[in-house]
Simulated scan of single mutants.
Amino acid sequence: MDTAGAPALHQNEPHGNDIAHRLNWLRAGVLGANDGIVSVAAIVVGVAGATSATGPILTAGAAGLVGGAISMALGEYVSVSSQSDSQKALIEKERRELEEEPEEELAELAAIYQSKGLSQATAQAVARELTEHDALSAHLSAELNIDQEDIVSPWHAALASAIAFVVGAILPMLAILLPPENIRVPLTFAAVLVALAATGSVGAWLGGSSKSRAAVRVVVGGALALAATFAIGNFLGATGVV
């Protein structure tokens, strides 16, 4: 294709959907790390409320970390697989329609652009040129907002989700295991709440919402989870149940 007369893209500006996809992946990573922080912190703090022995705390935390990472990966794999299968089915359907009804599809594409404000003649010209260049991509973009090159891999999504969870879970594990016994619980509370404030702010920044409001929400929620599990563990330990 001759691009001699085409305007050059600004190299320092994002074009296409790349930036949106990257932000979605980053947002998913932040949420996965947040889940890892809260769930594993709640487990280890709860056990620490029942016993000061390091062995049970380590065992419970490790089990929570591994189980949570696998659960996150499995959930993400199932979710993305369903989305991917649906997108592939729509792509195949569009490909078949283009083969069987090319004129009807051309008229449909022109109608889409005309509905967006182009004149009939301009819409038809745009539809013809796009069809000559890449008919399937043109229809997928205009009708379904799908890019056949951007279908997410379920395996990649599962791996990313598991890694994000593990990264988040490491913080409460270290905070509860490394300090002396007399300060391990309050230090874990402090470290976890600071980390949650950070992840809440980053998630809000990526979504374009209020960072302070998001930080308060996750900090309050995390504090309630930690307080509840610590109270339960402390009660069970005090009554001799465990």
Rank of each mutant, 00 (worst) to 15 (best):
A121D: 14
V44I: 14
P186L: 08
Q83D: 00
H10G: 07
V242F: 15
A50G: 15
A138W: 06
A89I: 09
T188R: 14
K211I: 15
H156N: 05
G61T: 03
M1S: 06
E94I: 13
F165V: 01
K116A: 01
L31W: 11
M173P: 05
L109Y: 10
L178A: 04
V242N: 12
T199N: 05
Q11M: 08
A142L: 07
A157N: 02
T188P: 15
I70L: 12
A162H: 08
D35W: 08
S81V: 00
L136A: 07
V30N: 01
L196R: 12
N17D: 10
A28V: 02
S137M: 02
W25S: 08
E100I: 10
M173H: 13
V216G: 03
M1G: 03
E76C: 06
S141W: 03
L144W: 11
R184F: 10
P172N: 02
V152R: 15
A53M: 14
G5E: 14
A175C: 09
L144C: 09
E92Y: 04
Q83G: 00
E76G: 04
A228W: 04
E92D: 13
N12P: 00
G46L: 05
A198W: 11
A198S: 12
A197R: 11
W205M: 14
V40F: 06
K116F: 06
V192D: 15
G46E: 05
D147V: 03
G46S: 05
A138E: 09
L226D: 14
A110D: 06
G49Q: 15
G29T: 09
N34I: 00
A41T: 05
E108Y: 08
A69N: 06
T51F: 13
A107N: 11
A138F: 07
A62N: 11
L26H: 01
A197Y: 11
E99G: 13
L74Q: 01
A8S: 06
I37W: 03
L206M: 03
P186H: 09
H21F: 15
L31C: 06
A238P: 00
L177K: 00
G221M: 07
V40S: 13
S82H: 05
L74G: 03
V44G: 01
G55S: 13
V66G: 02
A190F: 02
T131L: 05
A204I: 14
Q87P: 10
L74C: 08
G200Q: 08
Y77S: 05
E108K: 02
E104H: 05
T188D: 14
A162Y: 01
V241S: 01
V30T: 08
